[in-house]
Design a binder for these strands. Structure first.
Lengths: 95, 95
DNA sequence: TACAATTTTATCTTTTAAGATAAATTTTCT
DNA sequence: AGAAAATTTATCTTAAAAGATAAAATTGTA
């Protein structure tokens, strides 16, 4: 089996579940909001379904999170160079 | 029709095509690398197919890009706070 | 313009996502 | 423990993704 099926899909499912619980929703409510049935959501959250991109976006929309944040472990607190008011270059360790 | 079908899928398709061309591959070669047939890739690149997550990851893997970068317009040059050597807090405009 | 390579479209088959519903299981609360 | 709520699993149906192949259309080049 591929690492996608054994590792990535389950991880994506966990992120969806975390987001749903953070939003204080049960499967039935997320089903209503996303238009994806509760049984299907259960399979997805448990990493047992290779969902379509449209489903990922519907879920993300219903949970008000970025689809990207459901795909990968969040690099949370990323910041654009602009927000730092600097030259736009990242000087790294240089000083 | 949803904005996903009319807007997002075509945009994702364009990013895949850009990445493929940047990698100097034709559809036949990407098909071989990703295990997705050239006709299917053509539909995907033209935003006419609601692909599965596994397909997105296989394509990203073959192109050696992050799946995330195919999903959304890249916020290129994002930087982690750590790389800036600061406190970890983003002070924004505060000085 | 002709030829070659690439891409697109069409058709057909197989596989699987997803909906609906119901039943079973697990979790939560009184 | 018992009842209620939530989740999981099963079954069946429908829709659509994806493979294979071939043909048509486009694009690039000698």
């Amino acid at each position: 089996m591929s690492t996608f099926e054994t590792t990535q899909l389950p991880e994506i499912g966990k992120r969806i579940r975390n987001s749903r619980l953070s939003a204080g929703l049960n499967l039935h409510e997320l089903a209503r909001l996303s238009g994806i049935s509760a049984p299907a959501l259960s399979l997805i959250e448990n990493g047992k379904r290779d969902l379509r991109l449209s489903s990922l976006f519907r879920i993300a929309g219903a949970l008000r999170v970025e689809a990207t944040n459901l795909l990968h472990a969040q690099a949370e607190n990323l910041v654009t160079p602009d927000a730092l008011g600097g030259s736009g270059y990242n000087l790294g360790d240089y000083q």
